[in-house]
Design a protein around this nucleic acid. Structure first.
Lengths: 327, 327
DNA sequence: TTGAAAGCGCTAACAC
DNA sequence: GTGTTAGCGCTTTCAA
């Protein structure tokens, strides 16, 4: 068995209470005692049992994150930042992958609830009411989704999408296809909102396609529909779909950007490695991940009068898949 | 506060002990009692507190996984499978990212040790002695690394690299550059082992370059060196480096595969989306991830006489970046 | 088959 | 400033 607080107490010739205090509230013990306890703890290699501590304090020192797909670099980008920031704050992190299934998303939060102080939730597919329901089980911070009363780390997708249309219009495009991600996804709604606003402003002719699975395969499928609609530019819901579109167009001998311009969204690392490199919108995932953890930690000892929702800026990255149309 | 075992006991008109038994050792209670308890538990939405249970059983119901880089799809591929398999077995999973730092890798395992029943360790940079040292802290399964006495989920990288050379030789290449990953990495050693064997067998002229950082930037840097060495084929340690090589060659106006053939390793999804698509070796990451969890779970209730090390097969994927050399 | 009670490792009153 | 003690939610003897 591992070394317990009792072993340390014995070794330092004090009571277990003093050891506990020396470790968690140093100001409550005499400096010399504290030193002695700390020395004993170090010699023994003592590590407090967090589960036992949690049982009594009600805090676990853990946070959770649930994401729809760990194969999607967008979410692992968030995850990486979340885990880094959490570790810095001395929290450990549980991950769960819902496999894009809303039912699983809710279930996973509930399952985690007992073991964490709060969770960062990336659940684009969950209904609002469901989100409120799971919010009852544990403290929640939403990532990339805004809901009244729930803290959130957001990214300005609408603004990014507006910039995409501004860019295409500037190049001379008038007829544009938008490849929808999942209809109910907050992310898709936001992107579409920015799109519609820009489209209306510029009087662009919009062909609204989909919804498609926000995956490579979805792009493969969407490409043919977009081509049939005879547009000069294809705006994909995200990079992965755009990559699928690019692959399909290449297979069909349709040149990008010669015959058609294509844009993605997210700025995944690998999207810049295609030839031509993808024009896309950079999402500040790392920043949002860090922010989410900060919000969560703040939320845990706040009176909840103020519900922070922080928006990080997106940025259009113009690369090789967009040029003026031929006709 | 959440609903406890006491609430259930009260509701079912039994003692807490009976509730506990009904939930964990059904055969010890009368069927009717059991039914009554289960009903009460369901009505109340009771979920046992795992921390409290762990305190007494010594098992946490959690496993950990530590990886060098959550931005690397290779590791998130493993992670996804690990988490899926763990959830299936009713385990929750902790993740930690060491940021490629061996010191952090060891520290993270120690930090996790108290909260998990075991950990899946992806630590290419850790020294053997360090691995044994952390193995003292908790049950370990190594991923993609073989060490006597420690269970491991392996992939036949050496075989995959041998197949790469066989392929290049068959195309007519005689002078090949190998771009090393980190020298001390087990993975690089394995790949190099397969390479050396094949090179010796075929009498290929090998230019051994590096080590380089196993990242996109490493490939950027390596490309120029490989070109200067005047080889007809470049074998990269992994796909990410190969992607860097491709980008750099494109920038320099060197055609692939016209002027030089390039191969990667790992078969990341996005490696198939470059133009031309990358010839590479598929690593069975999902399979290895699942296997790792299975091994860990088995290990937990085994007598440790048998140390399983399971090797999954790799597969050469020939795509567009390899052709016969011009000269 | 069930209940009473001890106790896992720890923190938080409450005494001193 | 420090020790004693109760008890967090649960499982597991030990009796009945």
């Amino acid at each position: 068995m591992a070394v317990t607080i009792r072993d340390v107490a014995r070794r330092a010739h004090v009571s277990v209470a003093t050891v506990s205090r020396a470790l968690t509230s140093p100001e409550l013990v005499r400096p010399e005692t504290r030193t002695r306890v700390l020395a004993a703890a170090t010699e023994l290699g003592y590590q407090p049992n967090r589960a036992a501590r949690g049982l009594i304090t009600g805090k676990t020192g853990n946070i959770g994150i649930v994401v729809p797909d760990l194969d999607n670099p967008f979410f692992t980008g968030v995850l990486k930042a979340v885990q880094a920031r959490a570790m810095q704050a001395d929290y450990a992190v549980f991950v769960a992958d819902s496999d894009e299934d809303p039912v699983a998303e809710a279930k996973l939060v509930h399952a985690m609830a007992k073991q964490v102080d709060g969770v960062v939730l990336c659940a684009p597919g969950l209904e609002d009411s469901q989100v409120y329901e799971v919010a009852g089980a544990t403290s929640l911070v939403l990532l990339n989704r805004r809901l009244p009363g729930v803290p959130a780390a957001l990214m300005d997708s609408a603004g990014g999408m507006h910039a995409v249309i501004d860019h295409l219009v500037a190049l001379g495009h008038h007829r544009v296809a938008y490849l929808n991600g999942p209809r109910t996804s907050w992310s898709n709604q936001e992107r579409r909102r920015g799109l519609m606003k820009a489209v209306a402003k510029h009087g662009v002719d919009l062909v609204d396609l989909g919804p498609f699975a926000p995956r490579y395969e979805g792009g493969l499928q969407a490409a043919d529909l977009a081509v049939a609609a005879d547009t000069t530019a294809i705006v994909a819901y995200n990079d992965i779909m755009a990559l699928g579109v690019l692959a399909r167009l290449r297979d069909r001998g349709i040149s990008v950007p010669g015959d058609v311009s294509v844009t993605g969204f997210d700025d995944l690392t690998y999207a810049s490695l295609c030839s031509p490199a993808l024009t896309t919108v950079a999402m500040p995932v790392a920043q949002a991940g860090r922010t989410a953890v900060n919000l969560l930690l703040d939320w845990l000892d706040s009176d909840h009068t103020d519900v922070p929702q922080i928006v990080a800026e997106t940025q259009l990255i113009v690369r090789g898949t967009t040029t003026p149309p031929k006709r």
